[in-house]
Write a protein that binds this DNA or RNA. Structure first.
Length: 423
RNA sequence: GGCGCCGUGGCCGAGUGGCUAGGCAGAGGCCUGCAAAGCCUCGCACACCAGUUCGAUUCUGGUCGGCGCCUCCA
């Protein structure tokens, strides 16, 4: 099993099963309803866990929730904690709609503040951090490896606005002194304040997975500065931290990135309400996880057609796939979790219900194998239609078909009678 | 200014130094009372320009174009 790793810019091999695979995926900042782009790392994490477990790995997936952040203070002056709690609930509800279950742990930044304080204290004890008027900053110059993950050179990074508290404009905040309009804070050796953005992830990951773990995931837009800084903080303390960094491509919406600041947002709920959870999942399956993907009517319509196609397979007779067909599926996913390739293999399963069901199950799509039972009154109409056809009264047969269709079912003639399929 | 990703047939999208990706949409046919579903058949694909090579969509360099990041965006 290998995965593309941002740090080494190449595919990295995982040790063979049943080795432990500890995964940390960066989750959302909770201050409003999550958009469909936020779902990508969540879905990727859940799918990877599912696949690796079926391959015999001992998998632990941690997916964090950032509930301390400027955006939250801004969005709910005087009630930031309440908003964070509510938006956390929204996120859980919305991702639950995808039907993939939950990660093994969903830690929140606000629950690990004491550990964060300890982590920062350790950095100050070395040469890597310093206190300044109630803030604490990471000293980028103290860490020669800085920039390896993102390829950024600290001296080339765009000039920031002046901040007199920093020794060097490239330094980043580990702890921020409380401001008058910030209604949530914690006490610390440096006074009242709250953690900076990046430190929480280093702490939560190491808290739950240890100082060295296998996979760290998140959106491509987090490579710099977020993940670069996480890596710097942890390595500066001598921790190995993540071995493989998986960064998922971003969703595009009418050409540009879907993001809250662009205002071109479709929430997870909206997407599922409009397209259904299966179509949304298949949509994500159609592109490799590391590549950008366009959220458009065209791509979703195409995904919906594919969903119908899979459902159709289970309505027809069983026919065994060629020998070794499953191996192709395994090979596709073992090679950098190539879901578009796996999808092509799945189409090659033909009418082998068993194989297709097994494959769909990896992605939480086993529901596509379930065939719907028509209500008795519809079955009755279909029987009447069969009689009309037998009597060669085709006007009556077509009238009944129209009636069946109006009730949401499609009457098909098959060799030994009829078949009713939801429309 | 710096860093990174990407350009494949109408659309989506894998992949490979020479051997059919696949799906969606479309055209024709078989089947059907008519359909639907299914099955069969079909379409000069690899941004551009050089180079390496017996041979490049695949490697190298450049050009053009799209996208992302540059200290609180998944």
């Amino acid at each position: 099993m290998q995965l593309y790793d941002t740090l080494t810019r190449g595919k990295q091999e995982l040790p063979p099963p049943p080795a432990p695979v500890r995964m940390y995926f960066c989750g959302p900042t909770v201050y409003q309803r999550a958009h469909i782009g936020n779902a990508r790392p969540y879905i990727l994490g859940m799918w990877l866990r599912s696949w690796l477990r079926s391959r015999g790995y001992d998998v632990t997936l941690v997916h964090n929730i950032t509930d301390i952040n400027d955006r939250i203070y801004e969005a709910a002056p005087g009630a930031s904690a309440e908003l964070a709690a509510r938006a956390t609930q929204w996120y859980l509800e919305d991702t639950d709609l995808l039907g993939l279950g939950r990660p093994d742990a969903l830690p929140k930044a606000s629950e690990v503040v004491p550990q964060i304080v300890r982590f920062i204290s350790d950095l100050i004890e070395g040469v890597h951090a310093y206190e300044s008027e109630g803030d604490v900053y990471f000293r980028v110059a103290s860490f020669p490896e800085y920039g390896r993950l993102s390829g950024q050179r600290p001296d080339q990074v765009e000039e920031q606005g002046p901040n007199a508290r920093k020794d060097d404009p490239r330094d980043f905040a580990l702890w921020k002194a409380n401001k008058p309009d910030e209604d949530t804070w914690w006490d610390s050796p440096w006074g009242r304040g709250r953690p900076g953005w990046h430190i929480e992830c280093s702490v939560m990951a190491e808290e739950l997975l240890g100082p060295a773990f296998e996979i760290h995931g998140g959106g491509l837009d987090l490579v710099f500065p977020h993940h670069e800084n996480e890596l710097a903080q942890s390595r500066a303390l001598g921790h190995d931290f993540a071995q493989i960094w998986t960064h998922n491509g971003l969703l595009r919406f009418t050409g540009s990135k879907m993001s809250k600041s662009e205002g071109n947002v479709v929430t997870i709920r909206d997407a599922i309400e409009r397209w259904g959870r299966e179509t949304v999942l298949v949509f994500f399956l159609t592109a490799h996880w590391s590549k950008p993907i366009d959220f458009s009517d065209e791509t979703l319509v195409s995904a919906a057609a594919r969903v119908d196609g899979f459902r159709e397979v289970f309505r027809g007779p069983f026919q065994a796939a060629p020998a070794r067909a499953w191996e192709g599926f395994e090979a596709a996913l073992d090679d950098d979790f190539n879901t578009p390739d796996a999808l092509a293999v799945m189409h090659g399963f033909g009418r082998d219900h068993e194989l297709l069901r097994r494959a769909l199950d990896v992605f939480g799509l086993a529901s596509l194998a379930e065939t719907a039972e028509a209500p008795s009154e519809i079955v009755e109409l279909a029987k009447q239609r069969q009689e009309a056809r037998a009597a060669r009264d085709f006007d009556e047969a077509d009238r009944l078909r129209t009636k069946i269709e109006a009730a949401g079912w499609e009457a098909r003639d098959v060799a030994d009678g009829f078949q009713l399929v939801p429309r």
